[in-house]
């Protein structure tokens, strides 16, 4: 097990614990719980094994669901985002452009931001659709997705900066 794998494993555990113990209990403005655990789906190497990544996405979603008794909504949305990530990467960084090996090794801020926005947007829409699971709650779904999305984006954009230093050393 090399250093990168170890770092990922530790990230996995720490992010799950942080999400369950801290971020899922924030209730900002009464309803916003930023989903910082998605950072794991961001920092996993872009050129890593996709099959393993799908399994990891499933596992992290399942862990969150398991520890916060929230049904299968996290599992389903995290899994879907993990599956869709290669497409999102291509959309964010360009089909022909050089795709970085790691999210944190790249300097194109706008592309990184677009990537984050796509990933979080898709995830939040799926998650809240599943939570409300009703056509009559479309407005609520959009509202929750949007506000949670803003805070998740902010927090993930900030915390992803820690990884650069870790990887460089």
């Amino acid at each position: 097990m090399n250093q990168n794998s170890l770092s990922l494993l530790v990230s996995f555990v720490v992010l799950v614990l942080l999400q369950v113990l801290l971020f899922s209990k924030m209730h900002l403005f009464g309803f916003i719980n930023p989903m910082v655990y998605l950072l794991f789906l961001v920092i996993y190497p872009f050129k890593g094994n996709q099959t393993l990544f799908i399994l990891l996405g499933f596992s992290i979603g399942f862990s969150i669901d398991f520890l916060s008794q929230s049904g299968g909504a996290h599992t389903l949305s995290a899994l879907t985002v993990a599956y869709l990530r290669p497409f999102l990467i291509r959309n964010a960084f360009g089909v022909t452009a050089e795709i970085p090996t790691h999210f944190q090794n790249d300097n194109r801020t706008l592309n990184k931001l677009i990537f984050l926005a796509l990933l979080l947007g898709v995830h939040h829409l799926i998650y809240f659709s599943l939570v409300f699971f009703s056509w009559s709650a479309v407005f609520l779904i959009v509202k929750y997705s949007l506000f949670t999305f803003l805070f998740s984006l902010l927090l993930i954009a900030l915390t992803s900066r820690f990884y650069k230093r870790l990887n460089d050393s």
Binding site: F58, F62, D65, G72, L79
Partner: peptide
């Protein structure tokens, strides 16, 4: 896995 998570959701 999608099917499995739907099972979770269902259960």
């Amino acid at each position: 896995l999608l099917g499995v998570s739907f099972l979770f959701l269902n259960g």
